[in-house]
């Protein structure tokens, strides 16, 4: 391997690890809020952003980020005001997002391989800028969580008491939506839209199986997310598998392990 490719590989690898570390804990909060389908819906909306990017001949990434963040805020807002069941809101959003994406992509005449790279991602072929951006954003998310995890826990666990104690509940919910949207967009290039939502739920779910405190569940989820990316990449290189599939399958094994541990040890 020549040096340039070698460096690029390590950049992508680090970005992937950071993505795994950040998506685990965010997933824990989403699970706690019964919101684990939110990333799934947002991936469909992000797809709209990508198609829009093609149509306007702009850069897909910033547009996608904008569209996804707005959609995440909208879901939070709609659920609060309209009293729609959460899973219904998510279902509507996912459907509309995908429908719009299909129409836009067809208008942009971009039903081609470029679209596929967003659906399946490929951590091994991303550009250095993308790797750098992903790494930076993932670290930012981790720092945000380190600062706000207790407030997010309070809001996710007992919103009424959190509000009564003077916490800025609305802002905290928007913050969680923002983090989710950011992860979807970072993950889109690395893991792909079809599978990133899995990486945001499975490590968190596995962590909740084995943790004996909430703090532990955050650490475990970050660890499991990181392990999934590392293990998946190794598997994909060794066995020549698509990286995104290998990563999510690896996280599935971890979940299975956690599931069995809780039911045999505890």
């Amino acid at each position: 391997m020549d040096l340039k490719i070698y460096i690029l590989f390590w950049q992508a690898f680090l970005a992937g690890l950071a993505l795994g570390a950040a998506s685990g804990p965010v997933g824990v909060f989403l699970i706690l809020r019964r919101d684990s389908l939110l990333p799934h819906a947002l991936t469909h909306v992000a797809f709209t952003g990508v198609a829009l990017g093609f149509l306007l001949h702009g850069a897909p990434l910033p547009l996608t980020l904008l569209v996804t963040v707005l959609a995440a805020f909208a879901v939070m807002h709609i659920r609060e005001k309209a009293g729609i069941y959460e899973d219904t809101a998510v279902g509507i959003l996912a459907g509309l997002g995908l429908a719009l994406a299909v129409v836009l992509a067809s208008l942009a005449r971009s039903y081609d391989v470029r679209l596929l790279t967003y659906l399946f991602g490929n951590i091994l072929v991303i550009t250095p800028e993308e790797a750098f951006l992903a790494l930076g954003l993932a670290l930012l998310i981790l720092l945000t969580l380190a600062r706000f995890w207790e407030a997010l826990l309070f809001v996710s666990f007992d919103e009424e008491s959190a509000r009564a104690s003077g916490l800025r509940v609305k802002l905290l919910k928007l913050l969680l939506a923002l983090l989710t949207a950011l992860l979807v967009v970072i993950g889109m290039r690395l893991i792909g839209l079809l599978l990133i939502s899995a990486l945001m739920v499975i490590p968190g779910a596995a962590a909740l199986e084995v943790a004996r405190s909430f703090r532990q569940s955050l650490w475990f989820s970050a660890l499991f997310g990181t392990l999934s990316v590392a293990g998946g990449l190794v598997l994909s290189v060794l066995l020549d598998l698509p990286p995104s599939g290998a990563i999510v399958l690896f996280s599935g094994f971890i979940f299975l392990g956690g599931f069995l541990v809780r039911r045999t040890v505890v």
């Binding site: 826990l153 666990f157 909740l208 004996r212 909430f214 532990q216």
Partner: peptide, 9 residues
Amino acid sequence: RALPLTVYE
């Protein structure tokens, strides 16, 4: 049942 929250936390 699924929430591993301690009394301290």
